[in-house]
């Protein structure tokens, strides 16, 4: 092997190791992980939102043809949400705008992510897995406000 080839190979290896290290740092420092197996949650068929501690909420969301239940979730700034998502029919999915939330909703399985909303605003999400003729009308949003008297969900 030529010297220059060895250099190119080492540089490539180094690049990938640096990337990997940065990802492991993000996982350790910011808890940036990908969804994992959920085994401590019973299957659910209705959507709910409830408070589990002062600023923590648990959301059970159902995706179906062609709506998210709930489709609007109104919460105060600083809320942390434990989101559990499943599908009642075929595969759906969504990504919340400007947030590291991106989940597939698959029938027969529960998906989970924890997200914290530090800034007020509207966080839009659209169904991003093809789910039939009206797929493009399936969307929802988080509405995060400075003061919310009663956290609520709309569309269910």
């Amino acid at each position: 092997m030529d010297k220059s080839e060895k250099l190119a190979l080492s540089l490539s290896g180094l690049l990938l190791i640096v990337f990997f290290g940065a990802l492991m740092y993000a996982a350790a420092a910011e808890d940036l992980e990908v969804p994992t197996c959920i085994t401590d949650m019973d299957p659910f068929t209705t959507d709910t939102l409830f408070q589990t501690s002062e600023d923590t909420y648990e959301l059970h969301m159902i995706a179906r043809m062609w709506a998210f239940q709930p489709s609007t979730i109104r919460l105060p700034v600083g809320s942390t949400v434990d989101m559990y998502v499943t599908s009642q029919d075929i595969i759906h999915g969504f990504k919340v705008e400007n947030k590291n939330v991106n989940l597939m909703a698959v029938p027969g399985a529960i998906n989970y992510v924890r997200v914290r909303f530090n800034e007020p605003g509207e966080y839009f999400f659209a169904c991003h897995e093809f789910c039939g003729a009206a797929h493009h009308t399936m969307a929802g949003r988080f509405v995060i406000e400075e003061s919310v008297d009663e956290p609520e969900t709309i569309g269910g």
Partner: peptide, 20 residues
């Protein structure tokens, strides 16, 4: 090329950190 790859990749990496 490696420098370009690093710039693009870390650009998106910090985008992700900014979305926490």
């Amino acid at each position: 090329l490696i420098i370009l790859f690093s710039i693009i990749w870390f650009g998106l990496y910090f985008e992700m950190l900014g979305r926490v």
